[in-house]
């Protein structure tokens, strides 16, 4: 859907406006740093562009940090390899992986609010829609299961942080295609139903330009048939039919996407930002800039 691209574009836009931004990659595929043409990064935030730092969530590193910071457990080094401890915690207690992810992000936000971390904005390139509800719901679920212990203490403030519309917004990126639109409608319904997390905006990515004005439709129809076909092949060579075929595909795609956009409109009342389909050779800083510009245009800044 271009989740990473939108996250990177947003980070670029904010950094341009003087904000210090942390981008958190949750589903580490490494394509986020590609968008800044920077080498992959790990759990420690690395400044990949002026004002933009990126980190990748690693639940084991997150647990290690958590134990060190919150529990001051002196024997951590002595209970054997932390990996086996981690395996246990992550597998036996459902949701621990999820809460370690969301907890680390929440911690960065809280530290920033209290002036101990430098971020003005934390952007999370979150997990796919199927997972994100489980992740964001983890504090509440764990809070319901674990009523004592430090995990329980942690869930309260996390839930409050996630529910605060001044601090948190869940934004959805969608492309105007059948499945993504259906999933988005379902996701937003689930978020409203199951979570306390405030919804932000919907980024509608990869919107195709309108190729034909209504008045041109008959003309295009004529170009795609004989006798026009013969004239075009004669004047422009055998590739003329490929150009016409590409036009037909562009028109059809635009049309089917328009129908999905209509569905999205009717089903979702959140503000929407429209970003164009970019016909580019590869992802990189150029794409990030173009997306940042498109977001800026949509926001009127």
């Amino acid at each position: 859907m271009g989740k990473s691209t939108v996250a990177a574009g947003l980070a670029h836009l904010a950094a341009q406006r003087g904000k210090r931004v942390l981008v958190v990659e949750v589903d580490a595929k490494g394509d986020l740093t590609d968008l800044f043409e920077h080498a992959r990064v790990g759990f420690e935030p690395v400044e990949v562009a002026r004002g933009i730092s990126v980190m990748t969530i690693d639940t084991e590193a997150s647990l290690r940090e958590y134990l060190k910071l919150n529990l001051r457990v002196p024997m951590v080094g002595r209970i054997g390899p932390i990996a086996s401890m981690f395996d246990f915690v992550a597998n036996a207690a459902p949701g621990v992986k999820e809460i370690l992810t969301i907890g680390k992000i929440g911690w960065e936000v809280r530290e920033s609010i209290e002036g101990r971390a430098p971020w003005d904005l934390v952007i999370v390139d979150a997990a796919a829609s199927g997972h994100v509800v489980a992740q964001l719901g983890a504090p509440e679920a764990i809070g319901g299961l674990v009523r004592m212990g430090s995990v329980s203490d942690q869930t309260g403030w996390l839930q409050a942080l996630l529910a605060d519309p001044e601090i948190t917004a869940l934004n959805v990126v969608v492309t105007p295609e059948e499945m993504p639109v259906a999933e988005t409608i379902e996701l937003i319904a689930r978020v409203r139903d199951e979570l306390e997390v405030p919804l932000g905006v919907v980024f509608v990515n990869r919107v195709l330009p309108e190729l034909l004005h209504r008045a041109d439709e008959v003309l295009f129809g004529a170009l795609a048939e004989e006798p026009a076909g013969a004239v075009l092949r004669d004047r422009a060579g055998p590739g003329a039919s490929s150009v016409i075929a590409a036009g037909r595909l562009a028109v059809a795609l635009r049309r089917s996407r328009a129908a999905h956009l209509t569905r999205l409109h009717e089903a979702i009342d959140l503000p929407k930002l429209y970003l164009p389909e970019l016909f580019v050779r590869s992802a990189g800083i150029r794409v990030t800039r173009l997306i940042a510009e498109a977001i800026g245009d949509e926001l009127g800044i």
């Binding site: 026009a228 004239v231 075009l232 004047r235 422009a236 590739g239 490929s242 150009v243 075929a245």
Partner: peptide
């Protein structure tokens, strides 16, 4: 479609622009 990467297509696209007027008149 792989037709989109063939040189003939690019050549036709170029002519659609460069010889646009003449082609339109012929049409």
């Amino acid at each position: 479609s792989t037709a989109l990467v063939e040189p003939a297509g690019e050549e036709a696209a170029r002519r659609f622009i460069d010889d646009g007027r003449a082609i339109a008149e012929a049409l």
